[in-house]
């Protein structure tokens, strides 16, 4: 009973955390390059709706995932244009994109409400791995997007901390002028990482409409984009921490419902508060160390880079 309970909570935590993880990984890449993207919620919604439309039309959920990536990337392209080329305020542009994405997804999705998805992404049965007791049911009896995220997070960690390109990325986010003087193209790399971030947010949205629910309902992302932004801070801009954080954030609901089913009274308001409480806690911890930089906050985050102003 107890081990079943733990396995069930952890397995659902991973599924519930996966859309958060994709969105947060994307946001980490964008913020590492110095661009804050508050449009994640909107990009997830546009990804969810466009992925669903294409998956319904073609019957192929993978085409849906690819479309969601492109749609999220296109939204991010607008953000990159406004904040990198036009040097607009990143907060305002991001918020505008969330509003825009909410409206656009509602508009596009209207004819697709109430339509079931015939072919959602199904669980992949990995030989050997899935049959390991305890570990198998928790980690390896999920769909391909979950498994892919297991690879993606360490890969991004390796990229950021162990490759030359990752070093350039961090340099652009820390001190764009210095990176520029060393021959790194600040504009191009910021564009690239913001768009990559949007693509990952799009996958996060598609995970909800193609796997988790699976259906399209207006505003179905229901605030997960904002939790992803908080998660980035919680993760101290580190993809591996983001993985842990996503599963904690995702697991809070799973745990709360299961405790209710066992008649254990835990205030739902307390559980709802937890992700934000964790984030605030991490912020307090890291600022007490007196330097956000040491734990990963990019030095030039939120500041437009202008060559003329060096």
């Amino acid at each position: 009973m107890t081990s079943d309970f733990v396995i069930a909570v952890l397995a659902t935590a991973i599924v519930a955390g996966t859309p958060l993880l994709y969105a947060a990984l994307g946001e980490i890449m964008a913020e590492r390059s110095g661009i804050l993207n508050l449009g994640v919620e909107g990009m997830m919604l546009v990804g969810a709706v466009s992925g669903f439309i294409v998956a319904v039309a073609t019957g192929d959920p993978w085409l849906g995932v690819v479309t969601a990536m492109c749609a999220g990337g296109a939204m991010a392209c607008i953000h990159a244009f406004l904040t990198v080329t036009m040097k607009a305020n990143q907060v305002v542009s991001g918020l505008a994109l969330t509003l825009f994405g909410t409206g656009l997804s509602a508009f596009l999705g209207k004819p697709y409400i109430g339509i079931p998805l015939k072919e959602p992404l199904r669980a992949v049965h990995l030989p050997v791995l899935a049959d390991i007791p305890v570990v198998g049911p928790i980690f390896f009896q999920h769909d391909a997007l979950v498994l892919l995220s297991f690879l993606l997070a360490p890969a991004l960690w390796f990229y950021i901390y162990r490759t030359r390109a990752g070093l350039n990325l961090r340099a652009v986010g820390e001190n764009p002028a210095a990176a520029d003087s060393l021959g790194v193209n600040v504009f191009r790399s910021r564009y690239g990482y913001v768009i990559l971030g949007g693509m990952l947010a799009g996958i996060g949205g598609a995970y909800l409409s193609l796997v988790y629910v699976p259906a399209w309902m207006e505003n179905m992302v229901a605030g997960r984009g904002w939790i992803a932004v908080a998660l980035v801070i919680f993760a101290t801009w580190n993809p591996l921490n983001a993985m842990l954080g996503a599963y904690i954030f995702g697991g809070v609901d799973a745990l709360g419902f299961r405790l209710q089913a066992l008649d254990v009274a835990v205030s739902p308001y307390f559980l709802k508060m937890l992700p934000y409480l964790f984030t605030v806690g991490v912020l307090i911890l890291v600022t007490r160390k007196n330097t956000l930089n040491r734990i990963g906050a990019p030095g030039a985050l939120g500041e437009p880079y202008d060559r003329e102003e060096r």
């Binding site: 406004l82 305020n89 505008a96 909410t102 409206g103 508009f107």
Partner: peptide, 27 residues
């Protein structure tokens, strides 16, 4: 720089307006 700033404000305002048109008047 200042000219760019104004243009940026206009663009963002345009974007926000577009978003409101879509959300507010969709139905």
């Amino acid at each position: 720089m200042f000219g760019l700033g104004k243009r940026m404000v206009f663009l963002v305002a345009l974007l926000v307006a577009a978003a409101f048109i879509v959300t507010g008047c969709g139905g």
